[in-house]
């Protein structure tokens, strides 16, 4: 990166370190932090939306829809999330390839041949001829889906609980004003539930942050992958030889996550104060007495 880095062997001390930390592989390492943030940015809204649909389904008056919503939330319960992270991407990948093989391949050839899962080249996803970045993006997309399914189920539980927690009297008041069930949902239930949902959702956000290193298990080249790659012992055949430095790289990751959770906690505290304003709850009442302007 810097001009003086042309021959790292002649460098010492800080100059060596600055060249080492700005080498090509390190830039990829820094970019992989972006992958993590991208995963967070995509997964959080998708799983919130899934959770919202799940919660509405679980409250539905139509029984099959209610069962669907409740089963979805219950299936994730009792099973380690890692199993889902390992299972969903493979299952999804095979499902897509199976569907494509029914369309693009000879349907008389079975996909499962003994212990093999075989589809013809035209049904591969992504195609074998596709450039590398397509494969990378496909991997990340599968990861987003896996994370969204798991966290959507968590969010279903949280939002369902929050909707149940909205005081009955508030909904009855709306009924007395002659609102239709749909109007009540839109104007009363959904705006009011956020203050009850926030503790659960903020917990969920923290868990989501702490689940991101599991990307490594899905074969994505994320921060854990690069920390292992870069930290491992480098012999003198490398431009920057060093011993086993993995512990320092993982320490950096630890600090990164501590910062993320610390910043999130501060943001959540502010948001929670904002949502408690004017609520008929202990926190809201305390703010009213303290004379915080609504």
């Amino acid at each position: 990166m810097f001009a003086y880095c042309a021959d790292p062997r002649t460098l010492e001390g800080l100059a060596w370190l600055s060249c080492y930390l700005s080498s090509g592989t390190h830039l990829l390492f820094y970019a992989s932090f972006g992958t993590v943030l991208l995963l967070l940015a995509l997964t959080a809204p998708v799983s919130l939306a899934l959770g919202f649909l799940g919660a509405l389904a679980a409250r539905s008056g139509f029984a099959p829809l209610r069962w669907l919503g409740k089963t979805y939330a219950a299936v994730v319960r009792g099973v380690p999330d890692v199993i889902f992270f390992l299972f969903v991407p493979i299952a999804l990948d095979q499902g897509i390839e199976w569907l494509r093989s029914r369309v693009y391949c000879d349907p008389s050839v079975p996909v499962r041949q003994g212990n093999e899962f075989v589809v013809c080249a035209a049904a591969k996803m992504p195609l074998g001829t596709a450039p590398g970045w397509v494969h990378d993006f496909y991997g990340i997309a599968l990861a987003v889906v896996a994370f969204s399914i798991v966290f959507g189920a968590f969010a279903t539980n949280v939002l369902y609980g929050a909707m149940q927690a909205v005081p009955r009297a508030q909904l009855e008041t709306a009924e007395a004003y002659g609102m239709t069930p749909r109007q009540i949902d839109r104007r009363i239930l959904i705006p009011q539930m956020w203050s009850y949902a926030l503790p659960g959702l903020s917990n969920l956000w923290m868990i989501l942050i702490k689940a991101t290193p599991l990307l490594f298990l899905l074969g994505v080249e994320d921060i854990v992958y690069w920390a292992r790659e870069l930290g491992g012992t480098k012999t003198t055949t490398f431009a920057y030889p060093h011993g086993d430095w993995r512990v320092w790289y993982f320490l950096a990751l630890l600090v990164f996550y501590l910062l993320m959770t610390w910043v999130s906690q501060r943001a959540i505290d502010r948001l929670s104060a904002r949502l408690s304003r004017g609520q008929a709850t202990l926190a809201g009442e305390a703010m009213r007495k303290a004379g915080v302007a609504a």
Binding site: F216, V224, Y257, L258
Partner: peptide, 8 residues
């Protein structure tokens, strides 16, 4: 911090 990172 994530347990996964703590293990590593």
């Amino acid at each position: 911090s994530p347990l996964f990172i703590q293990f590593f």
